[in-house]
């Protein structure tokens, strides 16, 4: 399958994709790194034409030094961590449940997967208004029904609200992947363990869970990458207030709201480095898989 003809054809045919992605990666990245070393406040009259002042690592220091940095890291960790714990734990349970024989498997599967296809702006707004509204929301009705005081979700439990919304969106993803992984488990292995007299729990701990290990890792890594950059869910609900300003949202505000490009770019570089560290782990796993 390898002649000089086909190899040179292959290089030619790969070129458009490679060049496009290379451009997509390098051009904006270089610009971000460039801006991160400059003082660039378009509102105060800085512009590319007149040249920007070199400020060294000042933006980097100021981004970390600002009072909103650590809270944003905290918000990011809480949201990402919370969603991961919920989706992975519930995902495993749901996957095991859906793997059992029952009537209407196909339909239930569809019901469970559906939230993944709902666009982020829709799910955020539906949850915010129709479920979490302290006056007319479904939860408020429910709380009142049980004689409790309705919760002002978006202000009093803002981070939890975001976690609930995002978990609802990502639970299908985790479930679907874990279900696929469970289904690839050789049932003879389980039957053999059953024959050997292993009880249900130890069958789960010693056979199912280790088998799922790789799938769980993949779910965690891929979700982390997507969760680190959730945007629309915050944009249309709290707008970053009430402690829901994540790192992504903070950078967004620096660039768009306060128009401090240099500072925002420094934040962007941090975000890129962070994403790359996680990506590195993911690549290892995917890369190993390629060899097989």
């Amino acid at each position: 399958m390898a002649t000089r003809h086909s190899r040179s054809a292959a290089r030619l045919m790969m070129a458009p994709a490679v060049i496009l992605l290379l451009g997509w990666m390098l051009v904006p990245l270089t610009m971000t790194v460039f801006f991160s070393f400059k003082q660039y406040l378009p509102m105060r009259g800085d512009s590319l034409e007149r040249g920007l002042d070199w400020v060294g690592f000042e933006n980097y220091a100021r981004f970390i030094g600002s009072s909103s940095f650590w809270p944003s890291v905290q918000a990011t960790l809480m949201i990402v961590g919370g969603v991961l714990v919920i989706t992975v734990a519930l995902g495993i349970l749901l996957a095991i449940l859906l793997d059992q024989p029952f009537w209407g498997q196909g339909v239930v599967r569809i019901l469970v997967i559906a939230p993944f296809f709902v666009m982020p702006t829709v799910s955020a707004l539906v949850w915010k208004n129709m479920f979490m509204d302290p006056v007319n929301g479904m939860f408020a009705h429910l709380w009142r029904f049980f004689g409790a005081q309705p919760v002002s979700w978006m202000s009093d439990a803002s981070v939890q609200s975001i976690i609930i919304i995002v978990s609802w969106q990502w639970l299908p993803f985790a479930t679907l992947i874990l279900l696929t992984a469970i289904q690839s488990l050789d049932s003879e292995q389980l039957e053999a363990a059953e024959m050997d007299g292993a009880p249900v729990l130890s069958r789960f701990l010693h056979i199912v869970l280790p088998h799922l290990g790789r799938a769980i890792t993949i779910v965690i890594l891929i979700q982390t990458i997507f969760l680190l950059s959730i945007f629309a869910e915050i944009f249309v609900t709290t707008g970053g207030s009430f402690g829901t300003r994540t790192l992504t949202y903070l950078i967004f505000q620096r660039v768009v709201d306060s128009q401090n490009i240099g500072l925002g770019s420094a934040g962007g570089v941090y975000a890129i480095i962070l994403a790359n560290i996680i990506a590195l782990f993911l690549m290892r796993i995917v890369g190993k898989n390629l060899d097989r």
Binding site: A17, L29, T32, F231, T248, A271, A275, L282
Partner: peptide
Amino acid sequence: ILLWMLSTKMLPAVGVLYP
């Protein structure tokens, strides 16, 4: 090349919003 392509997917959008 495949892995590199994948890595471009991981680029956080907000990091390159302004450019």
